[in-house]
Amino acid sequence: MNLFRLGGDLAHLVSIFILLQKITANKSAAGISIKTQILYSIVYVTRYIDVFTKWISLYTFVMKLIFIASSFYTVWLMHNTYKSTQNPQIDTFKIRYLIGGSIIMAAIFNHKLTFNELVWSFSIWLESVAILPQLFMLQRTGEAENITVHYIFALGIYRALYIPNWVYRWIFDQYFDYIATVAGIIQTLIYSDFFYVYYQRVMKGKKFELP
């Protein structure tokens, strides 16, 4: 464990907290893409498929359960309690292409041809693009509540901090996972335009509006 990784994981927890807080306090899921949330549920179930069978540490065990449970809870809230506040007419990204593409990527790039390794690799590739329906939705509306924007920002920080973590582990631990690293860089690049607009607008106290 190093500070980059810990910071990344904490940013991830913060993003989940912000999202659930926004939905329950506003009693509304407006502006949040349920498609992105469904993709994250798929990501966590496939990534942590061995959560009960392979012990790494109490830290990873608890975090994995939090990520699986909170993503399902979010989807459940959006689909049931706050269904009427969703925007299905602007949440139109075709996620079957993201899922299909991730299956193909996992078939080509994996560490071993075993079920667990294939679903692990699938989850890594899917996570790298899972935010796209949310960013697409943001682009269609052209603006968003700052709380929604903070959620996406915290999620982006989580993945961005994993990059210096991999550099650190590569130098000091002789650890390098090319699949996680390449997919993580792709994911951070997807966020880069968003980060730029976030910095230009939100950091200067303005509303998040796409130029």
């Binding site: 990784r5 994981d9 991830h12 975090m63």
Partner: peptide
Amino acid sequence: EPETIQHDEL
């Protein structure tokens, strides 16, 4: 190559 790969990150 190890029998099972250890994915210790989240």
